[in-house]
């Protein structure tokens, strides 16, 4: 077993590598934040649809979740990138191809739709975890259906769901690395490029790993704090 490797950490601070790293980190954060917001919005809608009484709406919600969860994200990216533009009517296809940053837009679309399915599942299990007594109590105190959700269920469910909503941000954050396959220059692709140019893989991949790990640690700490702040006494028991 021989380990021959010359470390050269300062090279990361030189151009063009420094610029690639900055661009990669910015793109990763920007892409994941945007996709997360969209995923939460769609996910909440789909999750709520699955809780309604209408069997049709429920079916649509379930179909959405099953569809997006059972196809690997990389395949979804390829379908959005290679197949989706071909399916559009001719005029639309032309205007789609004229859009700037097509890889970024495609990545945003794929990531948010994929994650929305996961969010929808969390919303559903969050709402079903609420004891039925809460609904009964709210109804018997004379609240309307909308008020029940607005004042009782959502504040309750929201707190239960904070950890999962946060972990979905981290999921998107990590999944955004896949978008390098369609040419988005996020941090993993910057690291790959640095490795390919300099053959200093350890330094290059360390930058990417450190980015992911510090972000994860920050989000986990922040959410722990938030969860603690918003805790309803006696509800989310501290272990």
């Amino acid at each position: 077993m021989t380990f021959k490797y010359d470390f050269d950490w300062p090279m990361l601070l030189e151009d063009p590598y420094k610029e690639w790293i900055i661009e990669g980190v910015t793109t990763t954060i920007y892409l994941s934040l945007l996709a997360w917001v969209i995923a939460l919005t769609i996910g909440i809608i789909i999750g709520t649809i699955r809780m309604t009484r209408s069997p049709w709406l429920r079916f649509i919600g379930t179909a959405y979740v099953e569809f997006f969860r059972n196809i690997p994200l990389l395949v979804q990216l390829f379908v959005w990138f290679f197949v989706f533009p071909l399916m559009l009517p001719h005029d639309w296809m032309l205007s789609w191809n004229r859009l700037p940053h097509i890889p970024f837009i495609t990545a945003l679309l794929a990531l948010s739709l994929f994650t929305a399915a996961r969010v929808a599942e969390h919303i559903r299990s969050g709402i079903s975890s609420i004891p039925k007594g809460q609904f009964d109590a709210a109804r018997s105190s004379g609240l309307t259906e909308v008020q029940i959700y607005r004042y009782v269920i959502i504040p309750y469910a929201f707190r239960v769901m904070i950890p999962t909503i946060a972990s979905e941000f981290l999921t998107i954050f990590k999944n955004s690395a896949l978008t390098l396959t369609i040419g988005v220059s996020e941090i993993t692709s910057s690291a790959k490029a640095i490795e390919a140019w300099s053959f200093h893989g350890i330094e290059a991949y360390s930058v990417a790993s450190v980015t992911y790990m510090t972000t994860t640690a920050t989000v986990v700490l922040f959410m722990g704090w938030l969860e603690h702040r918003l805790r309803i006494p006696g509800l989310i028991a501290k272990k």
């Binding site: 999944n175 690395a177 896949l178 390098l180 993993t188 991949y205 790993s209 992911y212 790990m213």
Partner: peptide
Amino acid sequence: SNPLILIVFWFFFLVPII
């Protein structure tokens, strides 16, 4: 806390060196 794709790159690079 790391994406699978990055882990694959890591190992693809490191395993032959090690």
